[in-house]
Amino acid sequence: MQKYGEPDPRSAVDSLIASDRVPANAHPELLTEDDIWNLLNEVKDPEVPAVSVVELGIVRAVRWDGKTVSVDVTPTYSGCPATELIEELIAEALRAAGIRDPQINQVLTPAWTTDWITPEGKEKLRVFGIAPPQGSSSKLSLLGQSEVIACPHCGSDHTEQVSEFGSTACKALYRCKDCLEPFDYFKCI
């Protein structure tokens, strides 16, 4: 299993560097909209390289007419420092496929919610060691008890919150009382 700090050979940053070497697709007009989505599904989130930007649900729309492409992207958090990098990585992946001047639009409405993380994305988060968001964002209570979070390592429900905020804005810090491992929880918003 990949751990933090070890470079993933297919991480977004590496693919950005690699894409400079890939010759441009001579016939981008043959690409379908599904091909574009598949392409974007290869672009990893730089902060959580276990999942792609599509699995994370931040790619909201793709418009492709065989010549020009426009992609709507929504930030996870208002202050997410990865927003610009993600937009650049998406543009780079599209350019590498031979598409000229891809247009990336930042959209704020509707606001991103963890409900948009795909089931595959949630499973990949868990395997990566991050507990995926549990339940629906609509159930987030203001002053109520926090929900029970299962340990992504051993599956135990016997866990406790260490901090409401983790290594990035989108995560909280937990600890498993059975296997004693600390872990990140992808907050439900």
Binding site: S78, L108, P110, A111, S137, E164, K187
Partner: peptide, 24 residues
């Protein structure tokens, strides 16, 4: 104002966490 509503909707999710934490 739609733009205001959009920015606020995003911020509200974040600030809910802020308030939970500071009141605790």
């Amino acid at each position: 104002d739609e733009r205001v509503a959009g920015i606020a909707a995003k911020a509200l999710k974040e600030v809910t966490y802020h308030l939970r934490r500071s009141s605790e």
